[in-house]
Nucleic acid binder design. Structure first.
Lengths: 112, 112
DNA sequence: TTAACAAATGAATATATGTTCATATGTTGG
DNA sequence: CCAACATATGAACATATATTCATTTGTTAA
């Protein structure tokens, strides 16, 4: 029961990270907040494998274009995603692998 | 930039987990939601090292006893923490190491 | 330049949820 | 049993934020 949660997690749970100060805790909760809304999580999952334009994301996650756009802005401000223009379209993709790491950690947890 | 986010994360970002279905995504966002509120995150951080009674948590996180109790209930329902009675007091601790893993993953991200 | 398409934005609204306040429940020692 | 302490709980309230609706901005092709 103690020790590592599973073989895939290695020694991560035992990392001796300094307990974060007040400011860091807010930063941290803001980060997790991004993953804590199903609509945002769906969007992140949609662009997990490859970049997609807003329209593709909209149909994938079954939300209105406006709602998607608003959430994309939030995710971008949090630096979890990035975008580039290609003609009329704007393509969105994950900023870096941290998103995948955190996402997969959550998956491992609920699938234990 | 691609590949692993950092040495500590190993191959986690490359895990070939099946894209979660609708139900799993809700489960996942509910999980992250627990970490996405600073008051809850403070409580989790407070009992990171050792179990604490409600009163100790209350003074550590600087919240009212009632607010702490309400959040403890939420965290317990999410199975992130467990409790045991010792006399008048009830001691709370983390359910398992998943909490630490996810917490530390977030820390690694914001400290990159 | 204009029409058609793609995406973003601001304001209003709806909803979810964290906190407070008052009170109830549970435990121990005298 | 009663007083003091520890924690939990329900309802009301406050606040944060996701979504909608209408509109605007930006791009391309004719």
């Amino acid at each position: 029961m103690s020790g590592n949660c599973c073989s895939k997690c290695g020694k991560i749970s035992q990392l001796k990270t300094k307990m974060p100060d007040e400011a860091q805790l807010y930063e941290l909760s803001d980060l997790f907040k991004m993953f804590g809304e199903s609509s945002r999580l769906k969007i992140l999952a949609a662009i997990f494998e490859k970049e997609l334009c807003v329209h593709e994301i909209t149909t994938t996650v079954a939300m209105t274009q406006s709602a998607v756009s608003h959430q994309l802005r939030v995710l971008k401000q949090a630096r979890l995603i990035k975008s580039r223009r290609d003609g009329k379209m704007i393509l969105y993709s994950l900023s870096d692998d941290h998103v995948k790491v955190i996402f997969n950690m959550g998956l491992l947890h609920i699938n234990e």
